Simulated assay, not measured.
Amino acid sequence: MGFSSSFLVLVALLALASWQAMASDPSPLQDFCVVDKNSPVFVNGFVCKNPMDVKADDFFKAAELDKPRMTNKVGSNVTLINVMQIAGLNTLGISLARIDYAPLGQNPPHTHPRATEILTVLEGTLYVGFVTSNPDNKFLSKVLNKGDVFVFPVGLIHFQINPNPYKPAVAIAALSSQNPGAITIANAVFGSKPPISDDVLAKAFQVEKNTIEWLQAQFWENNHY
């Protein structure tokens, strides 16, 4: 390989490395960046308050995550602790959620666009799974018991179901973003405001328009609080 060819390969590798660096979140450049909720400045994340004004309560929330939560009609309740609840999480790339499941309740298929999730069962049993991206769409699932751990990769559709008809279940999830986001598939597709055209959805799901209209008329309740 000549000098010019070697030089071109080196440039290509440097460009690839630079692109990969830009494709991930930047590392924090200070100990913390507590949210300044009064700042009029808009950035990707939140503006830092003056470190001299930071106090212990910026890193604390009396969330009472040890107490059961009331579930909704799908039989679950996700209590998320992210940067909106703890200002000190800004730039730290992590959040936490308690998930309560009624007997036969489910946390329906959803994605986190900005986070990988690692889930630990605290009480009960869960049937969990996720689907890989196109073109394979491989479905991976597992039954989890108390103390078991499962990982849902960033952006992939996943769910959890409590298969027990008599006992509730509880899990704790850690997520690799201060603000992971959640897109519940049925809510987004059939409950969007304004609604997606029934012509579009009928063709996409290969069903009659009246089926789509019936689905769009349902009340798609949010279980992320």
Rank of each mutant, 00 (worst) to 15 (best):
M1Q: 05
G2Y: 05
G2F: 10
F3K: 15
S4L: 15
S5Y: 08
S5G: 09
L10P: 00
V11D: 03
A17K: 04
A17T: 03
S18N: 07
A21P: 00
A23V: 06
P26M: 00
S27V: 05
Q30T: 15
C33I: 12
C33M: 09
K37W: 15
V41K: 13
V43M: 10
F46N: 13
F46H: 14
K49R: 12
M52C: 07
D53H: 05
A56P: 04
A56M: 11
A56V: 14
F59W: 04
L65Y: 12
R69A: 14
V74T: 04
S76G: 07
S76D: 07
V78E: 05
V78M: 11
V78G: 03
M84C: 03
M84F: 12
M84A: 09
A87E: 12
G88I: 02
G88N: 02
L89Y: 00
L89A: 00
T91P: 04
L92F: 01
G93K: 01
S95Q: 03
L96D: 05
D100C: 08
Y101D: 03
Q106Y: 00
P108H: 01
H110P: 02
P113C: 01
I118E: 02
T120L: 13
G124S: 09
T125Q: 15
T125R: 14
Y127I: 08
V128L: 06
G129H: 11
T132P: 09
S133G: 13
S133W: 01
N134P: 11
P135F: 06
F139W: 03
S141K: 14
K146A: 14
G147W: 07
F150G: 01
G155D: 06
L156P: 11
I161K: 15
I161M: 15
P163D: 04
N164C: 09
P165Y: 10
P165H: 10
A173K: 06
A173R: 05
L175M: 15
S176P: 05
S177N: 15
Q178H: 03
P180N: 06
N187V: 01
P194S: 10
V200N: 06
K203F: 00
K203T: 01
A204L: 10
T211D: 10
E213P: 00
W214V: 00
Q216P: 05
F219A: 11
F219H: 10
F219D: 12
W220R: 06
H224A: 06
